[in-house]
Nucleic acid binder design. Structure first.
Lengths: 346, 346
DNA sequence: TCGTCTCATTAGCGCGCGCTAATGCTTCGC
DNA sequence: GCGAAGCATTAGCGCGCGCTAATGAGACGA
């Protein structure tokens, strides 16, 4: 590490208030307030003088004071658990974009899969009196969460819990599973193994959806599940298991892209070709699935829709336009790439 | 899209203030304030009664009012441009983590590589009177940026511009280039092509560092540069170029991992084996380089150090402990994986 | 010239909390 | 029993701005 001292001049920011602007413009403070609130009943002349003075002084309305006085906060709090998951981060990007369009700032509480931390973060967000909360895959028990966010406008994403205070946005797992299973079956596969994401709610839902989609096609008997979690290592481990016991499955339906990629890595290293010997299907359509070297067929979760819809639902509640609790399910899409192919006759 | 109405009960949050707590605890409002500021001179009995009342009412100090009154804001603003770059996002994660440890919240201004948007976001952050600014790879002209952030504590990451008001944190490009070049040369490579990230400052720096590292080893004559940008497509395009003109380079030093992966995809699709026929080296050591299917040798930028150092520098300035401008350069590390190998004799 | 009507402008309170000088209450020593 | 000393508590102003009732200034007709 190298440290260089570049100079020793530091200006200090001078806080400029409405009073300063009023003084310079030769009007009352309240008039400055009116101008910055775009109120009517201000002569063009006065308005111009105020704006000029503000520009000259570098004045910016103090959001803190404004929120305090108006009792309206233009900030949305996002609880993001966990931040190391690229899928959730992409979600956040969309959310932030949508919020910005609606004229709201976003205050993030980025967590690392710890309930205790989640508690702290929620406290911070509520301390800021955010206008509403977006909860991305929260870990906390529903009862506690309900108590904490009681009365706050809130939307929960990717976790369908009993939050009596929150609306809910997710993707339709059953549709996703059907898309994937049907695609594989259309390619001639029958024996399909699901690499489960473990015992979190979303993982369990995805697994159930897979099993149901299989049995809908009369393939309940040839469906198999290997438990794991949502990591690449879980995919690798599952692939080793598959190879070790000479499984006769010809297709893999992974619970997310990372798991799929992990499995592919081990398979190819062991001489099992994808998709010639075995087809692999991911979930999420995350950035890695689109890399040419990976080119993973995947189920796309409509992140953009999630983001837009969440903000919209939240604003409806913030503005009091709706007093019913609502859940939205978006349909995922199949993105076919190069890891799935017709089953080889062997 | 499916919409379900789940219920029609919505509680409304009742804002609880210090006065409410004071009333319930049977004390004055100021005493409640003292308790929540951990002041001395409060009897244990009073403290307990206040805390109990607060708990019962679900009171939380209002950060807005607190910041306004104390003139101290415990929020740091982060200008993040651009948010679609995973490298910058990882940086943000580290920053956010470090800030949290220091007891600060983080307000993000997530940009999409637009100067106009950057202006707006900075305005928002300053409107919130954040205690300090972290600028991740800002696009704006130095002169304008200087004017806007004048007097504000600020740290710039990954852009070594003339910001007289900001400290500066980056990785030592020359060290990184030397690590990469020396690694390849040690493996017997001499003719090395650099896939440049284009004409942004950091890309130009990286290119220059590459050329300098080459000439230090007496290989100036066998160094080549293909211009591009920081995307996967740029890597693909460069690889096509390399194949088309039957280039005799045996190693590729890409300006980042995404570019490297793009190049590898095209090379392998064209029958050029990595690393048997050509070695490929990335930069950043981002998540994708560690995927087993990719396993890209890369130069690791010490993100964690970046994050910690940035926050530390910023706090030093916020707390007025330092009035000199400072720049920090961290040394990157070489992470050897499977895309680089000894040059084949052909 | 005077009163009325209209509209731009202002005075002043409130938002929730930080902070300090002043107040009230104990306790103690002599 | 009295004053001093030590603490716990309170009253009250200020932070920067939103908001409304009240004020002032013109414009107009009679």
């Amino acid at each position: 590490m190298t440290l260089n001292v570049l100079s020793n001049r530091y200006a200090v920011a001078v806080p400029v208030t409405q009073s300063d602007v009023a003084l310079r413009a030769g009007v009352s403070r309240a008039l400055v307030s009116l101008v910055f609130r775009d109120a009517t009943n201000v002569s063009d002349q006065s308005r111009a003088r105020v704006l000029l003075a503000a520009e000259e002084l570098g004045y910016r309305p103090n959001m803190l004071a404004r929120s305090l006085a108006s009792k309206k906060v233009r900030t949305i709090g996002v609880l993001l658990n966990d931040i190391t998951n690229p899928f959730f981060v992409s979600m956040y990007v969309e959310l932030s974009d949508a919020a910005q369009d609606a004229g709201y700032d976003v205050l993030v509480g980025p967590g690392l899969r710890s309930v205790a931390q989640e508690r702290t973060l929620l406290g911070t967000l509520l301390g800021h009196r955010v206008a509403g909360l977006i909860l991305i895959s929260p870990l906390m028990k529903a009862s506690e969460l309900n108590r904490i966010i009681a009365g706050y406008p809130a939307v929960s994403i990717a976790r369908d819990m009993n939050l009596d205070g929150a609306d809910f946005v997710t993707n339709d797992e059953l549709v996703g599973a059907r898309l994937g299973v049907r695609h594989l079956v259309d390619l001639g596969h029958e024996r399909i193994v699901h690499l489960s994401g473990g015992f979190s709610r979303s993982a369990v839902h995805r697994k159930r959806a897979f099993l149901r989609a299989m049995s809908e096609l009369g393939l309940a008997g040839s469906a198999r599940v290997i438990e794991g979690d949502f990591t690449e290592e879980a995919g690798r481990s599952a692939a080793r298991e598959i190879i070790r016991c000479r499984a006769d499955e010809t297709a893999i339906f992974a619970s997310n892209d990372l798991v799929a990629v992990g499995a592919m890595g081990v398979l190819e290293a062991s001489g099992v070709r994808v998709p010639e010997d075995v087809s692999v299907l991911g979930y999420d359509n995350s950035v890695i699935s689109d890399l040419q070297m990976i080119s993973l067929t995947s189920i796309e979760q409509p992140l953009r829709d999630f983001g837009r819809a969440s903000i919209r639902l939240l604003l409806e509640r913030i503005d009091g336009e709706r007093d019913t609790r609502v859940s939205l399910e978006f349909e995922p899409r199949l993105i076919v790439r190069r890891t799935t192919a017709r089953r080889a006759i062997r």
